[in-house]
Nucleic acid binder design. Structure first.
Length: 359
DNA sequence: CAGACGTGGGG
DNA sequence: TCCCCAAGTCT
């Protein structure tokens, strides 16, 4: 008897009985599987579902995606985060159209070469869409296999990931790469969850070293990263005329680069508000009132945004990355969540006024 | 290899 | 409120 193969069979059977009904499980179209896999990177299933459906309606195949304006792709992505994913998606679509005649490649090497596709995603697309026997080692799989095998090594190490991939291949029931890989991830999502896994309901609890030795909360071993930095404080300028608001197309190098935000400068003890806005944007501003503050937490930094209503001093020209934006445009443009928060503040402000009128 | 890169949900 | 995380990739 082969322990690893036994485990594989149990997982596959469990998956067939317990898998969730997710939109990307209704298709084998590699294009759609690919879109789902990219969206699911570091992102929750519940969040992805609506984006996935909307994205495919808008870009139903690789040609449509390839032809689209980058701004429209980003707009479909806004709020999902990690916006490089959206740009790479389009670059890859372009490449597939130009070099593969629009047919999604079906070898590991060709898929792995596409921008935005790493070791995990290549294995996922190849196994899920083409049922080829490659491992797809994501965070779930690292956790599930570490626990089953009682692995003590740091799962952040490339060597460990490779080793876990090999174990996955040994478990994989013949001819079932697609369902088996998904079964590992599904188990990790539903049962073998990071904290307090539900071992009682696990189909392989009898095989699982972590469960048998009651170490399910100690595994997998992961080196903790440094966390919460001090917030960086910004002055954020809200400059409105009758029906427009002045927004900035952010520079390529900046965080949230090549998307739309508000003119803003880092709060600085030595330099004045007015001087900084003039130097950076050519904007002559008069500070009117503080609308409020809002915080946005990124993985690696925190913004504290002090939102200030400003008036333009006089008619003058300003930096070309600034543009008057109408309300309709506001809905279409790729404006990330960090700046949607500012609109929220403005809405609240109006809401307060209305409440005051009513009472 | 470590750090950049978003966001929202749950304990 | 705070902290951790979730189907990673690129540099």
């Amino acid at each position: 008897m082969d322990r690893l193969k036994d485990i594989g069979l149990h997982l596959l059977h469990w998956y067939n009985e317990n898998k969730r009904d997710l939109p990307w499980r209704k298709t084998k179209d590699p294009y759609k599987i690919w879109i789902s896999e990219i969206m699911l990177q570091q992102t929750r299933v519940d969040t992805v579902i609506e984006y996935y459906l909307r994205f495919l309606k808008r870009f139903p195949d690789v040609f449509k995606l390839s032809e689209a304006r980058e701004e429209d792709v980003l707009s479909a992505w806004k709020g999902l985060g990690y916006y490089t994913r959206a740009r790479n998606l389009q670059k890859a679509a372009d490449f597939i159209v130009k070099n593969h005649g629009g047919v999604f490649p079906s070898t590991f090497e060709d898929i792995r070469r596409l921008p935005g596709i790493g070791e995990y995603t290549a294995g996922a697309v190849l196994s899920i869409a083409f049922n080829q026997e490659y491992p797809a080692v994501d965070g779930n799989v690292l956790r599930v296999i570490s626990r089953i095998e009682g692995l003590e090594e740091d799962i952040g190490k490339e060597k460990v990931k490779k080793g876990i991939g090999e174990i996955v291949l040994k478990m994989m029931p013949e001819g079932n790469a697609s369902d088996f890989n998904q079964s590992l991830m599904e188990l990790g999502a539903l049962i073998c969850i990071p904290v307090n896994p539900i071992c009682r309901e696990c189909p392989v609890n009898g095989f699982c070293i972590a469960n048998l030795t009651e170490r399910q909360n100690e595994l997998p071993f992961k080196i903790k990263k440094e966390k919460n930095t001090e917030p960086i404080e910004y002055w954020v300028a809200v400059i409105q005329d009758k029906h427009h608001i002045l927004m900035e197309f952010r520079s390529r190098e900046s965080l949230l680069g090549r998307m739309w935000g508000f003119p803003m400068i880092e709060k600085n003890e030595t330099e004045e508000f007015e001087k900084q806005f003039e130097e950076k944007y050519g904007l002559k501003l008069k500070k009117k009132s503080v609308i409020g503050t809002t915080k946005h937490v990124f993985t690696h930094q925190v913004w504290k945004m002090i939102v200030v209503r400003c008036e333009l001093e006089e008619k003058h020209s300003f930096a070309s990355e600034l543009r008057w934006i109408s309300e309709e445009e506001q809905k279409e443009l790729p404006i990330p969540t960090a700046f949607q928060r500012v609109f929220k503040l403005l809405d609240n402000e109006n809401g307060w006024e209305q409440m005051e009128l009513e009472t």
